[in-house]
Design a protein around this nucleic acid. Structure first.
Lengths: 195, 195
DNA sequence: AGGGTAACCGAACGATCGGTCGGGACAAGA
DNA sequence: TCTTGTCCCGACCGATCGTTCGGTTACCCT
């Protein structure tokens, strides 16, 4: 353990506060004044720790993306039948989404108004396409029901997973609770998708 | 038919433009300047047709909510077994979501920063709860699989439906295309949910 | 022809936006 | 004790925000 000494802000601890406010009010709806109130320091002090509002967004989004892409490198996502790899990615994506909730929420709500936001959208598309490829392969291997279009199924699957950010609140956010939700997601999705 | 004479703006035709820009840039990320450029009239002219930015949001959200609540009054949503009524509501919600895409999209992205937005959130919760009640009844009647929590299933179902706004684009938006997507949604959801 | 009004405009309003600036308080190292 | 650097502040910047205002068209009705 390294943490509990600080009573002053670090870029990361400030990010924790900022991301929370961003999610409550929306990024565009959040002013530096809002952030300063929430952090308990003056507006100008924020600039001692980070370059500005957009850097906070960039840091948050980068963190979310790092966690998501790491899933695709896990052994269970690389080895085995495509359908099993897909189910693993589904479950793990749901888990990461809950573990990194505020960061992923921010990522999922980006509009593309600035360079940072467009970069976020591009990286998200990358991730989606890699999962879509997995789903396509699973379909080609005959492990998915044939009467649902692959692209449509991909989108609905992600829709279901990503919607977790709309209601999941990690109040008593134990690992077990997250695994339970991820299990339900995988069950509902694949009981409908599997042959 | 009454319409096709106007080459000037009405509150409704202006709303069409505004809602599109709101969805591209986000409501908070859209300035009246943006709207005036998109509408091709000056910023001040907008105030000739509507009271202001927030009225545009209120009109858009009201339209979305009207269409959604109308579903619950349809005969197929009132009569019959709960599970069948639920499937009807699911299918119709998906259809309405596509038919009224920009308006519903706006509704689903509200944050609660103003009175108008908080009103929107409250009405949304009403709708969700009515559907949740339907799902609960279907479960009580033994028509839904028992190994998925009812509240969780409701949320995932809505998550799947609502995620349509993230990717559906009504370019060749015929009624048939919409029915096809709604059919896929219902199939995926209920092939996983039904006993 | 003339009066009324719907539709529009440029200019400007006070407020707030994200960000800058110079400096004060305080602790550590010399 | 005197620096040095971290952390923070109030005051302020130009730009942009949503909105208002006074006025100019252009068309309809008589």
């Amino acid at each position: 353990m390294t943490m509990p000494k600080r009573d002053t802000y670090t870029p990361d601890s400030l990010l924790t506060v900022a991301v929370q406010v961003f999610n409550e009010r929306g990024y565009d709806g959040t002013s530096m004044e809002h952030l300063s109130k929430a952090a308990g320091i003056s507006k100008s002090s924020i600039y001692h720790h980070v370059r500005g509002k957009e850097e906070l967004l960039r840091r948050a989004i980068a963190r979310a993306l790092d966690h998501l892409f790491a899933i695709l490198d896990e052994p269970e996502a690389v080895n085995g039948r495509a359908v099993d790899r897909l189910e693993h990615v589904t479950r793990r994506t749901a888990e990461v989404l809950m573990a990194e909730l505020p960061y992923v929420t921010l990522l999922l709500r980006v509009h593309g108004n600035t360079d940072t936001e467009r970069w976020a959208l591009a990286r998200r598309r990358e991730f989606d396409q890699q999962v879509a490829a997995l789903l396509k392969q699973a379909a080609a291997e005959g492990d998915l029901r044939a009467d649902v279009d692959v692209r449509l199924a991909t989108r609905l699957l992600f829709g279901m997973i990503n919607s977790i950010v709309e209601w999941y609140r990690p109040e008593r956010g134990t690992l077990a609770a997250r695994e339970e939700v991820a299990e339900a997601v995988a069950k509902m999705a694949f009981a409908g998708l599997r042959v």
